[in-house]
Simulated scan of single mutants.
Amino acid sequence: MSIPRRLEPESGPRRVLPDFRRSAATIERMLRSLDDGPALETRPVASAAPGSADAAGVRVISSSRAARTALLRAVVAGLLLWAGLTPAVLATALILRIPAGRSPRVELLLILTVLILGALALLAAGARWAVLALAAVRSRLERDAQAVTVFGPFGSRRVPWTEIVAVDSRVLHPVHGLTSALRLRGGGRVIMPLFDRPLWTYHRPSDRTIRDLRARAARHDPTGDR
Rank of each mutant, 00 (worst) to 15 (best):
W82H: 09
R189P: 02
R208D: 02
L34R: 12
P18Q: 15
V137D: 07
D212G: 07
D19A: 15
R21M: 10
T201F: 05
R15M: 10
G152D: 02
S2F: 14
A133D: 04
S64Q: 13
I95P: 03
L182V: 02
I116A: 14
L81Q: 08
G177F: 03
L17V: 15
R14D: 08
Q146S: 14
I116Y: 05
G78M: 11
A49Y: 08
T162W: 05
R97T: 10
A67G: 10
T209C: 09
W200S: 11
R43V: 11
R143P: 02
L184V: 05
D212L: 09
L17E: 13
R143V: 05
D168V: 05
A166V: 04
V75A: 11
A93M: 11
V159Q: 03
L90K: 14
E107M: 11
R128G: 03
A124V: 10
D19C: 15
S23K: 15
R216F: 06
F195H: 00
P87G: 03
W82V: 14
P44L: 05
A127R: 04
A66G: 06
F195G: 00
R65S: 12
R204P: 05
G101I: 08
A56T: 06
W129T: 04
F154C: 14
A91H: 07
R214C: 07
P44M: 08
V114S: 06
G12Y: 11
D196P: 00
R185D: 03
L80C: 11
V175G: 01
H220R: 08
R59C: 06
R22W: 10
R214T: 12
A135P: 00
A215F: 08
T69V: 10
L7C: 12
T149R: 08
R21Q: 10
S33N: 10
T69M: 07
